[in-house]
Simulated scan of single mutants.
Amino acid sequence: MSITTRRTFTISALALLAACGRPQKPSKFERYSGAPITQVSINKGERRMHLLSGSTVVKSYDISLGNQPVGHKQFSGDGKTPEGIYYVDRFNPRSAYHLSVGISYPNAADRAFAASQGRDPGGDIFIHGRGPDGNNLFPRQRDWTAGCIAVTDEEIQEIYAALMPGVPVVIYP
Rank of each mutant, 00 (worst) to 15 (best):
S2E: 13
T4R: 15
T5N: 11
T8S: 14
F9C: 07
F9R: 14
I11D: 04
I11Q: 12
I11S: 03
S12H: 03
L14K: 05
L14S: 09
L14V: 13
A19G: 15
A19H: 05
C20M: 15
G21E: 01
P23T: 05
Q24I: 14
Q24C: 11
K25G: 06
S27I: 07
S27H: 07
S27N: 08
R31E: 13
Y32Q: 06
S33D: 11
G34W: 04
I37W: 06
T38L: 05
Q39K: 15
V40Y: 01
V40Q: 04
S41I: 12
S41V: 12
G45S: 15
R47D: 00
R48G: 00
R48M: 14
M49P: 01
H50L: 09
H50V: 09
L51Y: 03
S53M: 08
S53G: 08
G54S: 08
V57D: 10
V58L: 04
Y61Q: 07
D62C: 01
L65K: 02
L65Q: 06
G66I: 01
G66E: 05
N67E: 13
N67H: 15
P69M: 08
P69D: 01
V70H: 05
G71Y: 07
K73Y: 09
Q74L: 14
F75S: 10
S76I: 14
G77K: 12
D78A: 11
K80M: 13
T81D: 01
G84F: 00
G84E: 02
D89R: 11
D89T: 12
D89C: 14
R90V: 00
R90N: 14
N92L: 13
N92C: 04
R94G: 14
A96C: 02
A96Q: 14
Y97L: 11
Y97M: 10
H98M: 13
L99N: 03
L99S: 06
S100T: 08
I103W: 13
S104Y: 04
P106F: 10
P106R: 07
N107I: 10
A108N: 12
D110W: 12
D110C: 06
R111E: 11
R111A: 13
A112R: 15
F113C: 04
A115K: 15
S116V: 03
G118A: 06
D120G: 06
P121M: 06
P121G: 06
G123R: 10
D124A: 15
D124C: 08
I125N: 02
I125C: 03
F126M: 12
F126D: 02
F126Q: 09
I127V: 11
I127N: 08
H128W: 07
G129I: 11
R130V: 00
R130S: 03
P132E: 14
N136D: 10
N136V: 00
N136G: 11
R140D: 10
Q141P: 01
R142E: 08
W144D: 05
W144H: 05
A146R: 13
G147L: 09
G147T: 13
C148F: 08
V151F: 04
T152Q: 03
E155W: 00
E155C: 00
I156D: 04
Q157D: 01
E158D: 15
Y160Q: 00
L163Q: 03
L163R: 02
P165A: 10
P165E: 06
G166K: 07
P168N: 04
P168M: 05
P168I: 05
V170A: 01
V170R: 12
V170S: 05
I171C: 02
P173Q: 12
